[in-house]
């Protein structure tokens, strides 16, 4: 179109190099999945086969890991959004601006402090004699410590915590874009604040919620470090399975087939969520 842009497209070239490297890497790995495992030191040998896929899809324990990864990620994403909505509301709408700034600061510092830090901290916090359990038992809420570690609860808590900044950042934009006069109209027509929130604000927020859901769900699916540290081998998500097949079983083709199945089911489930989301949005509006 513009003269200046006729040549500016060539500026993409260095990135194109990276892009082709990515394509080759993913492509080669996917190719690997169609071959039998090779002897030590090699990646694969022999003629193409679908055996690896039968191994991934055929075993009940593999299916269990796949479905628990998808299901837990979805549940965790919903919880994350429920926690994030009040935060976003307060950040955008708190009368005192410092309140919002303080929460943003907390999010930024948490976000930048990194995953390993947070995983480690939860590992200590959630232990049988950790701060959480001490608080719960000392205050008499529970008699015996709750086991958080090495089961889904600890993994879920830490992943929720990891996702929270992403969810809040995305929701802030959605809350900001709400037209407050619609809510004011509802109030003037006699709706209480609570009714206005559920009947007016939430439906208007729905598209933003759905975008956030898809985002945090896709991040949750990729969880690796949190189940590895807090799941202690008992809670395994697909990323951990891929890692084990690579470094414990040294079976690269099997790992590759697992990864391909993982990606396909991840994209399919994300597509399904977006599809249902659109249906819900349509039904509401």
């Amino acid at each position: 179109m513009a003269k200046t842009s006729d040549r500016s497209k060539y500026l993409i070239s260095p990135a194109l190099l990276i892009a082709s490297f990515i394509v080759v890497a993913y492509g080669y790995f996917a190719l690997t999945s169609f071959f039998p495992k090779g002897p030590p030191g090699t990646q694969f040998v022999g003629t193409p086969t679908l055996d690896n896929y039968w191994r991934v899809l055929g075993s009940g324990s593999n299916q269990a890991v796949l479905f628990s990864t998808l299901g837990a990620s979805f549940l965790i994403s919903l919880i994350t959004i429920a926690v994030a909505v009040p935060m976003a509301m307060v950040i955008v709408r708190a009368k005192r601006e410092w309140v919002g700034n303080l929460i943003m600061l907390a999010i930024a510092v948490t976000f930048l402090s990194g995953g390993v830090t947070r995983a480690y901290s939860w590992l200590i916090l959630l232990g049988n004699r950790g701060l959480i359990n001490l608080g719960l038992t000392n205050s008499g809420i529970v008699d015996a410590p709750i086991r958080f570690l090495y089961n889904w609860s600890g993994v879920g808590i830490s992943i929720t915590h990891y996702l929270l900044p992403f969810a809040v950042f995305t929701l802030i934009g959605a809350v900001r874009n709400l037209n407050p006069s619609v809510e004011e109209a509802a109030r003037s027509l006699g709706a209480s604040r609570t009714t206005t929130f559920w009947r007016i604000t939430m439906p208007m927020l729905l598209p933003g919620l759905m975008v956030t859901l898809v985002l945090v769900y896709s991040i949750a699916l990729a969880s690796f470090l949190f189940p590895m540290l807090l799941g202690g081998g008992k809670v395994r998500m697909i990323a951990n399975q891929i890692y084990d097949r690579m470094f414990v079983e040294y079976d690269i083709p099997y790992a590759a087939a697992t990864a391909v199945v993982f990606l396909v089911s991840a994209f399919a489930s994300i597509w399904l969520i977006s599809f249902v989301a659109k249906k819900i949005e349509k039904a509401v509006s």
Partner: peptide, 12 residues
């Protein structure tokens, strides 16, 4: 997922 990217790059 990072694991897939990591393992692909390592493999290549």
């Amino acid at each position: 997922p990072g694991v897939v990217t990591g393992v692909s790059l390592l493999s290549l």
